[in-house]
Design a protein around this nucleic acid. Structure first.
Lengths: 152, 152
DNA sequence: TCTACATAGATGCAATTGCATTAACTTTGG
DNA sequence: CCAAAGTTAATGCAATTGCATCTATGTAGA
């Protein structure tokens, strides 16, 4: 009998804090971007992955794995990013179904501008609130909650 | 010069973990409810607040304060809950604009059923992953991130 | 009292999301 | 080589969300 149907008060509190705080912080960051006239966080996430991927770009399904967005969500997000000239879609040599998404110079510039605001939000909302050790501890503890228990 | 434009690597990592883990866990819980043929988490949040409030009920604006949902979101959610017979709307004696929302017996029952599933998710996803001390630590650290820095 | 302003809650409309399906390939197994 | 099954990405349509506004009521000050 290791399965508990009802969580401990400590677990409930940790859960509640996690849900509430993450939502609040996310909204604060989102708000800051909007106030600066920039695009939503989801755009940043994708541009960030693409920037890290470099010239080789990424396939949409790889973006799905990395960002955890839904397939249709990525499909539409990429359509908007392309319409805005932030990414380009290239055919894939050995797979006629697929495409490779590559960030454009314009996309990199947009990402840079977004980071100026987003990074400051992170610094203000998290960096300024906890010490380096505490940050490490939070990361480690949250890491143990990953579901399924894997990857970074 | 205490304002940092760029967050430390530790802050970035903690932020990323927080956003990713909270989303994953939320989705897992949401999925479990759906798989059990139950309503979404937002319904639970509201029913929970109303159940705690007791016979006196709560005004919609109080629900907004407690749940952090948007005004229009609460307005529509309550309309659906009422349509399902889970809550009832009562006029307020001394304020003709307002109403008091009270949970019904049916609503309490629905909340109970949802908790059976939701509680198990919390136990599995959080309670089973960290010790009591670690849970306390997570709650404390996350508590320091509340924004604005206040209330429980 | 009357006007100006504030607060409570609902809602029209456009944009976004989620679900289910589809179209266009690829791969596998006979 | 062919049929069946799998993968990749897009999309029609309904439901939900977000924004801005609106109605109704309450409050404060001239």
């Amino acid at each position: 009998m290791t399965k508990k149907a009802t969580p401990s008060p400590g677990a409930i509190k940790a859960w509640a804090r996690l849900m509430r705080v993450s939502r609040q912080l996310m909204e604060s960051a989102e708000e800051a971007l909007k106030a600066a006239g920039l695009s939503p966080l989801a755009w940043y996430d994708v541009l960030h992955e693409l920037a890290e991927a470099g010239e080789g770009g990424l396939r949409p399904f790889q973006l799905i794995e990395r960002t955890l967005f839904a397939q249709y969500s990525i499909s539409r997000l990429l359509a908007r990013l392309e319409a805005d000239g932030l990414v380009e879609k290239l055919p894939v040599a050995d797979d006629g179904r697929g495409q490779t998404i590559r960030i454009t110079a314009n996309g990199r510039e947009t990402r840079r501008k977004m980071w100026a605001v987003y990074g400051r939000s992170i610094a203000d909302l998290v960096g300024a609130k906890l010490s380096a050790d505490e940050l490490t501890m939070v990361s480690a503890l949250l890491g143990r909650l990953r579901h399924p228990p894997a990857s970074d």
